[in-house]
Amino acid sequence: MPRFWLATRWAIALLISISFELLLNGPAGAQAAPRARAYTRSAHLMGSHFTFTAVSADDSLAWRALRAGLRETQRIDRLFSYWDSTSQVTKINRLAGIRPVVVDQEVVDLIARTLKISALSGGAFDITFASGDKIYKFDRQAHASLPDSATVRHSVRRIGWQKVQLDPIKHTVFLPGKGMRINLAGILQGYGVRRAQELMKKMGIAGGLINGSGDVYCWGQQPDGSGWRIAIGDPARPQSVSSWLTVSDLAVVTAGNYEQYFTVDGRYYGHIINPHTGYPATGLRSVTIICPDVELADALDDAVFVLGPVEGLAFINRLKGVSCTLIDDSGQTLVSKGMQLNSYHSAAPAAAAHPTSKP
């Protein structure tokens, strides 16, 4: 029986193939009750491709819910965009070092949650990464060398999540240093998916799937009653699959580094920057987080990328209700404690959850 296939994808080219069972009416003349089917709508949002899927026996309800989910994501994009000159995030950045900015409670709340994740991850996740100097060009080309160490150290001088000043009473955000900036790109797609899903479910959509370019949340069941099958791509073989799992009421979020990168002496350097050192995070090609909260998963994949395979796995193993699977620079698949994957032939054998040394 055909199933729903979806490969998680954020910055890496991962396989997405979705098939729906064809649902037929009863015999001619019979007054059969409407049967559930899957309705899908796609849009370009937050600079990425989003797909909204609703499972329903009521086509009018399904289309209303899809439109509502899309509009909610658009609203969030306008509110938090780093690039939109009218967004509240842009205003915070524009007035850095000048004065606090009054913002919506929603903005205060999301920034507060990012700071908690920063503290939890030891600063591996940091929305002030945008304060760093642009010293790299991720053009997929071979470069002669990395920037010199003094330039790299200087590039991160304004970064620091601890510097962000929130006043929950006055609803203000203040960046105390001139040139400081925040960018919520590392969590915003997950937040948009979460809010859209909550809205669609409240409207009566008991099953569905939203994919924000690799930030995936699925709930309920497919039209045939089965769970949602999520495929994880193979970084070494674009458009192929390394493993898969079947889930429901869970987020599966993947980050990777082979769409935006450069190489030096044959080594890949991806676009995710370690906010402590200023150098691109190394050691991993792909990170997939599985947990009930798609917003949290969206932030954790970047944190694990920065921490690397050893510290990243140890970090996830300390978190309740969170699992991960990683693909390191050597192509080996690593999994957290209790994580069960179905591997394809293209996947490297799964390793122990506690590797003893970095690759």
Rank of each mutant, 00 (worst) to 15 (best):
E295W: 00
Y217T: 03
V294F: 10
Q197V: 08
P292I: 00
S48Q: 15
V306P: 00
A32F: 04
A255I: 12
Y268V: 14
N25R: 15
Y191C: 00
I230L: 07
I290V: 07
I187K: 00
C291A: 13
G256Q: 05
T356S: 11
F138L: 06
I98W: 08
I117C: 09
L45M: 15
D302G: 10
G225V: 03
W63N: 10
P275W: 01
R64N: 12
R229I: 05
N257C: 10
G278V: 06
I16D: 14
L6E: 06
K202C: 09
T282M: 07
R195H: 08
A297N: 04
W10A: 10
Y217A: 05
L22E: 15
D329L: 08
R157S: 15
G177A: 13
E106T: 00
G214K: 04
W161T: 02
E311S: 07
G270C: 09
L95T: 14
N274I: 15
A96I: 14
N25C: 15
D265V: 12
N25W: 09
T288L: 02
S330P: 01
R237K: 14
V102F: 03
A303E: 10
P292D: 13
S343C: 15
D133A: 15
S81M: 10
S248F: 02
E106I: 05
K201D: 07
S131N: 06
V310S: 00
S85C: 04
S145H: 13
E106W: 05
L15E: 14
K337R: 12
V164Y: 13
A251W: 04
V101W: 03
V287P: 02
L296G: 01
L45A: 07
F262Y: 08
Q31T: 13
K137L: 13
T172A: 01
E198C: 00
A112C: 00
D302L: 14
G225A: 04
G233T: 02
T246M: 12
Q332I: 03
G122C: 01
Q165N: 07
A255Y: 06
D234C: 04
S242M: 07
D148F: 08
V89F: 04
P355H: 05
K163W: 11
V107F: 05
F80P: 05
H171Q: 14
P359I: 13
G204T: 06
G179R: 01
S48K: 14
T86F: 12
T73G: 11
C324P: 03
I272M: 02
N274S: 11
D298W: 00
S56L: 04
H154G: 07
R181N: 09
L184F: 03
I98F: 09
S213W: 05
M180H: 08
S248H: 12
I273W: 00
P359V: 03
D126R: 04
K116N: 04
R267Q: 11
A281G: 02
R157E: 13
A144V: 12
E21P: 10
E106H: 06
P275Y: 05
W228D: 11
P100G: 01
S149H: 11
R75V: 06
V101G: 01
V156E: 08
A33D: 15
